[in-house]
């Protein structure tokens, strides 16, 4: 659905069902330079399971207009305000990559109505190398291509896909190209500059789930495993794939999330 939010056209994927805030809401937060289409195989899946699903395109991403947020904190405030605007109370926040940092920050602001936090290919920090930071300014398209290549495991190289006929690289590049050219640069700087992750992780009071990727070159497994140690009782799984776990291992990821959600009920 499209709403006017903070004066800008804002797109929110709802998994093909209309939004019903009386149900438990799953709010998916996309990663750097991504948009709602990172969760193609999660949005409909959970909406059809009876959850209320909200997959916003952050400002300047996907179908949303507006100026890109310039820090993780700004992203978290934007999401917080959006949840208030939509009158969403019981929410499970599911972040992928940068979305995990945003979820950590959001946890500080939105304490009362959080049901749980789910981190997909996440960590408490996402340092970005200088080369990629510069390239994202000079040639965002090239930077996107590099991220898509680094981000996928062998399935990307070999054009293996659970969705018949789809290519991780071809689809991934074009998803990133849908964003405004400045979006990636601000995202990568936001990730690189974020330094409150350790505190934020230690402060998590709600049930937490982390699904990490064995061959993650963007948020390496080592960093993810250190991160989950900071969280009290974080249920942790590792899947054999790259960073783009939602499209590389959709069924396994959905099944882990689904079991976790059932335990919450």
């Amino acid at each position: 659905m499209i709403i006017n939010f903070k004066g800008a056209k804002t797109y929110i994927g709802t998994g093909g069902k209309s939004l019903d805030v009386t149900k438990m809401t799953l709010c998916f937060l996309h990663g750097a330079g991504q948009n709602h289409l990172s969760f193609i195989q999660q949005a409909r899946f959970f909406a059809y399971k009876g959850y209320s699903v909200v997959v916003p395109d952050m400002p300047a991403h996907g179908f949303s207009d507006g100026n890109p947020c310039k820090s993780i904190k700004e992203n978290a405030e934007w999401i917080n305000d959006l949840l208030v605007e939509l009158n969403i109370k019981d929410v499970v926040v599911i972040g992928h990559s940068q979305g995990c940092l945003v979820a950590l920050e959001l946890n500080r602001i939105l304490k009362s109505s959080f049901e749980a936090l789910i981190f997909v290919a996440g960590s408490n920090e996402i340092p970005v190398n200088q080369f990629l930071l510069e390239l994202s300014k000079e040639n965002p398209q090239k930077a996107s291509q590099m991220m898509v290549t680094w981000g996928h495991g062998i399935d990307g190289d070999m054009s293996i896909n659970k969705w018949p006929g789809h290519s991780h690289y071809g689809e991934g590049n074009n998803i990133m190209c849908m964003n405004k050219p400045t979006a990636l640069r601000y995202d990568l700087h936001s990730c690189n500059d974020y330094s409150d992750g350790i505190d934020a992780a230690k402060n998590i009071k709600v049930p937490a789930l982390a699904v990490l990727a064995k061959n993650d070159q963007m948020t390496p497994l080592k960093s993810g495993l250190k991160f989950v140690e900071l969280i009290k009782n974080c249920e942790t799984h590792t899947l054999d794939c790259g960073h783009f776990l939602p499209s590389e291992r959709p069924m396994e990821l959905n099944s882990i999330i689904n079991s976790f959600l059932l335990k919450l009920k």
Binding site: S159, N161, H166, S167, N173
Partner: peptide, 13 residues
């Protein structure tokens, strides 16, 4: 299909 998508540099086939 996935071989063709890769050879053409397309999103899907």
């Amino acid at each position: 299909e996935q071989r063709l998508a890769a050879l053409e540099g397309g999103a899907s086939a």
